[in-house]
Computed example of a mutant assay.
Amino acid sequence: MQNSPRSTRPVATGALAAVTLAAAAVVATGPAQAVVGGTEAAPGAYPWLAAIGTPAFAMRPAGQFCAGALIAPDQVITAAHCAVPAQQTPEALTATFGRDDLSATGGITVGIKSIRIDPRFRVSIFDSDLTYHHDLAVLTLAEPVPVTPVAVTTPRGDTGTVVGWGATTDGDWANSRLHTVTVPLAADTDCVTAYGTEFDAGEAFCAGSPTADTGEFDSGGPLLVDGKLAGITSWGKGSAQPGYPGVYARVASTTF
């Protein structure tokens, strides 16, 4: 979801410099997210969840700036707006699994071999904020990981679960703990009321409330229904803003 403006830039070289600056730009210019109103996730509850980052992005624990979900032994799905800046330098990114606290060590960290962006991905504007359409990308890992991928489903029912290492309040860059919260799924008509023509039910759905939402640095992370992946955290106006639920890219229809 929305990202807050950023002014600090770390010093790096080569491909890492480019991706670091691009990651900071993602944080600075687009909608960000963080799990707001949640609680710490149970240890080991989401082994397929990836923290996506770059070692040079020192402003965040483990260089994390987005998240993703393992959908095959060597493939992670995330938001396109997280991956586009590194499309030409995928080796500058890493994906870390099995680390509930990013300030700790452990888990499995692997490099990224290639990035595939949904060819329909595009960026537009809503009320001075960037909005994303068909906001999906698949990262191919440098090697398979010994983790069972998450199953995929369609959004249905009244609630879903969001998970992420993002900010728990506005401007929180320091959180390193994995959080989760139950969010209400919004009707498509409510999304149209909130976002007008910027919302397309064919490629996205909405969820969240003023007390439960994703937030900054949660972009690319999962929205789960019955433990299965239904959506990818994409964008929204603010975080936990009344009348503006978060927007999630639909995963089940992914064909790129």
Rank of each mutant, 00 (worst) to 15 (best):
M1H: 08
N3F: 05
S4W: 13
T8S: 14
L16I: 08
A18G: 03
T20N: 13
A22H: 04
A23P: 03
V26A: 11
V27P: 00
G37N: 06
A41Y: 00
A42V: 14
W48T: 10
I52T: 09
P61A: 09
G68E: 05
A69G: 09
D74I: 04
Q75Y: 02
V76E: 02
A83S: 10
P90G: 08
F97V: 12
L102Y: 04
T105F: 01
I115C: 05
I115K: 09
I125V: 15
F126K: 01
D127N: 15
D129Q: 14
L130G: 11
H134R: 05
L136R: 13
L136H: 04
L139H: 04
L139F: 06
A142P: 00
P146A: 13
P146D: 09
P149D: 05
P149R: 12
V152W: 10
T153D: 14
T161E: 15
V162I: 15
D170K: 12
N175Y: 05
N175C: 08
H179N: 15
V181R: 02
P184G: 13
P184K: 08
V192K: 14
T193W: 06
A194P: 01
T197A: 15
F199N: 00
E203L: 07
C206G: 08
A207L: 05
G208S: 08
T214G: 08
T214E: 08
G215Y: 00
E216T: 11
E216Q: 14
F217P: 01
S219I: 01
P222Q: 02
K228H: 08
K228V: 00
L229G: 02
W235S: 03
S239M: 07
Q241K: 04
F256V: 00
